[in-house]
Computed example of a mutant assay.
Amino acid sequence: MLFTKWLVIFMAALVLPVHAASDTDWLRYKQRFIQADGRVVDTGNQNISHSEGQGFGMLFAVAFDDPQTFEQLWKWTQATLHDEATGLFYWKYNPNAATPIEDKNNASDGDVLIAWALLKAGQQWDQRHYLQASDKILRALLKHNIVDFAGKKVMLPGSHGFTFASSMTLNPSYFIYPAWQDFFARTRLYDLQTLIDDTQQLMLDIDWGKRKIATDWITLYADGTTSPATQWPARASYDAIRVPVYIAWRNPDHPILARWQALFSPYNRLTTPAWEMVSGNQKADYPMSGGLLAVRDFTMGELSPSSTHISRYEDYYSASLKMLVKLADTGF
């Protein structure tokens, strides 16, 4: 059974492109958010760029079989965001600042997405140098961001600023399970399987809040307990919304998904609040739209082609969520 399980995961890592380069949504995504030099622009955040956006763009380029766009994205990412000291990537580029790279920290979800896209590209287009680049980033993540704490293996959101004397701060939306599974299929490093098992158990062990789901940011204490991180609102919002996507991508029957379905099911589709506090009755006074609604539809098993259609008015994050759901729905 174990062999069969990992054979399925290995075959998933070798999947062919799931969409054509002429896909209307991909063409619109490129037109609206990817510059000619390969920089992905966050139109909802003062036109900055970040490693997450570069990773999303690279992943989408592989899925839509667009090697030219992929190479443009990778070249800009390497030239602009690569941190030679760690082998990871600076998380933010602000074109309006005198020093565009003001914060030298990384964001581990961006690093994972970039490495995953390189792995997919190397396999799909038979490019050994992409595979080597992916392996190198993975080794850097294992060295700088994947750590043991409270009897569990977890991934820090960044190399600096998230560890304290008796706790650490985590972002569950950075736990990109299909990427970790593909890394394991390639490397057979059991630290990656432990990372998957431990972080999923961490979320299953949540016993606080009405829905017992992770907030955008959580605190993990030395005794193994967790709570919402106090530096951010204690709500399931624009970060945490990615959790059910990454869980359901390869495991649509995972018990964590039932908790997210319980969050969405009390509401009609078009009245589902954009976010909800984990305690009390406070929730957004506006409904989900765009990419948030696509995640809700995917999680509830109600996805339709219109759910992931990118309108001409979509901002970067909403469009990226829709594209992510599109890939997850096909098992890319």
Rank of each mutant, 00 (worst) to 15 (best):
F3T: 14
K5V: 06
W6S: 13
W6C: 08
V8F: 11
F10T: 15
A13P: 05
L16K: 15
S22L: 00
D25T: 01
W26M: 06
L27V: 11
R28A: 09
R32G: 06
F33R: 03
F33H: 06
I34V: 15
R39W: 12
V40F: 13
V40E: 12
V41W: 08
G44M: 08
H50Y: 00
G57M: 09
L59I: 04
A61G: 06
V62I: 11
A63R: 01
T69G: 09
F70T: 09
T80N: 04
D83C: 01
T86W: 01
K92L: 13
K92W: 04
P95M: 05
A97C: 10
A97W: 09
A98V: 10
P100N: 11
N105G: 07
N105K: 03
N106S: 11
D111H: 02
A115E: 07
L118I: 05
Q127V: 13
H129F: 09
Q132R: 15
S134A: 15
D135C: 12
L138H: 11
K143P: 03
K153N: 03
P157R: 02
H160W: 06
F162I: 02
F162S: 01
S166R: 15
S167C: 04
T169F: 00
L170C: 07
N171W: 04
S173Q: 05
F175A: 08
R186T: 01
L189V: 00
L189F: 03
Y190L: 02
D198V: 02
T199R: 10
T199N: 11
M203F: 14
L204F: 13
D205M: 11
W208I: 04
G209R: 06
R211Q: 12
K212W: 07
K212V: 00
T215Q: 07
T219C: 03
T219F: 03
A222D: 15
G224A: 07
Q231R: 01
R235H: 07
Y238A: 02
D239M: 04
A240P: 02
A240F: 08
V245W: 02
V245N: 03
Y246F: 11
R250P: 03
R250W: 04
N251V: 05
N251T: 14
N251I: 02
N251L: 08
A258H: 15
Q261W: 09
A262I: 06
F264L: 13
S265G: 00
P266F: 01
P266R: 04
P273F: 01
W275P: 08
W275H: 10
E276I: 14
E276Q: 15
E276D: 08
S279A: 14
G280T: 05
N281F: 13
K283M: 13
G290V: 10
L293E: 01
A294S: 12
V295G: 01
D297R: 05
E302A: 15
H309Y: 13
S311P: 00
S318R: 05
L321S: 09
V325S: 12
D329Q: 14
T330D: 13
